[in-house]
Amino acid sequence: MAECKVEFFGIPRQRAQVAELTVHLEGSSPTLSDLLQRLAGELPDFGRDCVVDNRLADGYIANRNGEEFLTDTSTPLPSICTILIMSADAGG
């Protein structure tokens, strides 16, 4: 069981149509993949454009608690965490 606050930025926010939401994941050790699968189901536009095969589509990246970037979708999520979803390209 994990309680994940998800914050969306840029295109992911536009597709999700919310800036943030909280997701409760069942199971003993839910992963980033589980979270993305759940989000894709609840937020169809986000799922269509930002999630492929339960991982983030090219061009997007996840970050845990504002500290660590995650690309391995099998990464277990702690029982309480914040996941940021944003563009992987920081060029400006």
Binding site: F9, I11, G59, G66, S87, D89, G91
Partner: peptide, 24 residues
């Protein structure tokens, strides 16, 4: 036209602003 440039097409470089802010 693919996903690698979607950020630039849809919101432009300014997309950085809130993400950078969140990451201090």
């Amino acid at each position: 036209f693919g996903p690698a440039t979607a950020k630039y097409r849809e919101l432009g470089t300014a997309t950085n602003l809130l993400a950078f802010n969140r990451l201090d």
